[in-house]
Each structure stands twice: as C-alpha cells, then as structure tokens.
Computed example of a mutant assay.
Amino acid sequence: MTDAAPISYARTVRGSGPGLLLAHGAGGGIEANYGSIMDGLAAQHTVVGVDYPGSGETPATEAPLDLDVLVDQLVAAADAEGLDTFAVSGYSLGGPVAARTAVRHPDRVTSLVLSATFAHVDTRTELATDIWHALHESGQHVLLAQYLTLLALSAPVLNSLAPAQVRAAAEHTAAVIPAGTGAQVDLVRRADVREDLAAITVPTLVIVTAADSLIPATLQHQLAAAVPGAEIAELGTGHLPFVEQPKEWLGLITDFLGRQQDRH
C-alpha cells in the first residue's frame, strides 16, 4: 500500500506587524475559536493560523492526527507568509501544539500564550473526551452539542439561558460540527507534552479558564507550574473564553505580547 497523498491545510492570514501563529482546539477551527478576537489580534500582528484536518476548509484525513505534523503545518504556514519569528497562541488542543512548536523551533518562537489548555489529560478529562468521541462517531450530534454545552460553558452563563435556548443552540451547533472532530478529540486523548515543558525558554503566559469543566483549572495550573518562569492569568470563564469574555481574553493576550515586544 502507498501512503495517501498529503492534504492541503487551509490557512487564515490577517493583519500586519510581528508574527502571531494560532493553534485551535479540537472540534473547532481558527474562525470558531479565534474569530471573535481576530480583529483585535490583527490590529497589531500578522496573524497566521491553519485549520486541522476536517476543520474549516482543510479536508479530513483517514490517518490519526500527529502533534508534530500539526506543528510542521503551522510553521510551514509561517514560512509561506515570510515570518522568520513569531509568537504562538494555543487554545485547548492548540496548547500542546504551541508548546511543541516552541521546543522544536526555539530560535523562531518569541513567546507563548496558552489558553484553557493542558500538558496531558487526567482520568476525568479522558472520560469526558471518550464520551465526546463516542457521541460524534455515533452521529448523535445534537446530543453531543448539548453535552459540550454542559461541559464548556460556566454554570452562571449556562443558567442564564432558558432550556429552549440551549436546545436551539445545540441544534445549530450540531449542524456545523467539523467532520474532523473525531480525529481531533482522539489526539486530545493521546497528546502529552509534559516532557517538553521544562525545555520552553521563551516568555510564556498561561491563561487559566477558572470555571472550566472540560479542562479543569488544576490541569492548567499543573502545566503552568512546569514551564520555567511562566506567568499565570485567570479568566472566570468556562472552556470558551471567546464566547464568555472575548474582550478580556483579547486584552490578556495583546497586553502580554506587547510587553514582550517592548523588551526588544
């Protein structure tokens, strides 16, 4: 058997200024995860992101996803846009992608911002992703969307909605769940960058989503503690800072990146 032909990764490019690469979460995409803050990021940076297989315009693949391949594709997008150096922002699954990028390309990565993320999953999060994966593969996408709403929104935000609103939102979400969700969630379960963290040498901000039921704050703090000199900021949100507090999330990212640029 021959290997399948390589797929072409869809690329988002916005703005001008210092480079900023974006790595998105499982079952998301660059637009889904960063769209609400993209204008603010692009006002100060040349923003480059790639959609993983089965998200955005990137075709799905039959092969299991590999963290290093995602890193390669992100850096290749930076190369294609002429960016020699760049900061990297990783959200959720994008956190391990960003961390691995910094370790593999220490001469090119200038700083890291890791939001709502993990170095590896614990038993609770593995159980949550097992259910996520099973619901996706079974085609029960409305039930999956309801389950993700329960896990991803903070209790105050979820309780501010009527049950009928939640149901309607779930039906809408179910219709746009990326085809590559199953493979991306499978990578969440396998990703483990614990051995990479001590080798990170660039300024790093870990943004902890304090009311997160999918990636608990404990996991996020464990990651931060293992990165030398990492700064920690907390948002009182669930797993979706871009839904619950986009302005605050943007402010944390841009303030940190601005401080790093002022030092050079």
Rank of each mutant, 00 (worst) to 15 (best):
A128Y: 04
L148Q: 06
W132A: 11
V109M: 06
T117W: 07
G95P: 01
G95Q: 02
T129A: 10
A116V: 05
T125A: 15
T129F: 15
A155C: 03
R104Y: 01
S160H: 08
Q165D: 13
A170G: 00
A116E: 08
Q140R: 15
A169V: 03
R104E: 03
A155R: 05
P163A: 12
V113S: 14
G94C: 03
D107S: 11
T110Y: 04
H141N: 13
R167I: 13
H136Q: 13
R108E: 01
L161G: 06
R104T: 02
L150V: 11
A169M: 03
A134E: 14
G94T: 02
H133G: 08
T125R: 06
S111C: 14
W132H: 15
L114R: 01
V113Y: 12
T149G: 00
A98V: 07
L127W: 07
Q140K: 10
H105M: 02
L144R: 03
A119M: 14
V97K: 03
S160F: 05
R124G: 09
L127A: 12
V166A: 04
A134L: 13
T110G: 04
D130W: 05
Y147T: 08
V109F: 05
A134H: 11
V166Y: 01
L143G: 07
L143S: 11
Q140H: 12
L112T: 08
P163V: 14
H141P: 05
L135Q: 13
L127V: 09
G94W: 00
L153V: 03
Q146F: 01
L114M: 09
A164F: 04
T123V: 13
H136K: 09
A116F: 05
P96C: 03
A116T: 07
D122I: 08
G95Y: 03
V103M: 02
H120E: 12
Q146H: 07
G139K: 11
L127Q: 15
I131W: 09
H133V: 15
V121H: 12
T110D: 11
H133R: 15
A145L: 02
T125S: 15
V157L: 07
E137Q: 13
S160C: 08
A168W: 00
H133F: 14
L161C: 11
S111E: 14
T101H: 02
V113G: 12
P156D: 11
T110P: 02
A116G: 10
I131L: 15
T129E: 15
Q165F: 04
R167N: 10
E137F: 03
V103Y: 01
A164I: 09
A168T: 01
A152G: 03
T149Y: 01
L114G: 03
P96Y: 00
R104G: 02
S154P: 04
S138W: 04
D130F: 06
E126A: 12
Y147C: 05
E126S: 10
G94R: 00
I131Q: 12
R100L: 08
V142L: 04
L135T: 11
R124E: 12
A152D: 00
D130M: 14
H141C: 09
V157A: 12
A162T: 11
H105I: 04
H105T: 04
L135A: 07
P163E: 13
V113E: 13
G139H: 09
H120N: 08
H136C: 11
L150Y: 06
H141L: 13
N159A: 14
F118N: 07
R104A: 04
W132F: 15
S138A: 15
P106S: 14
L161I: 06
L143N: 09
L135R: 07
D122Y: 13
A102K: 00
L161H: 10
S138V: 10
E137D: 14
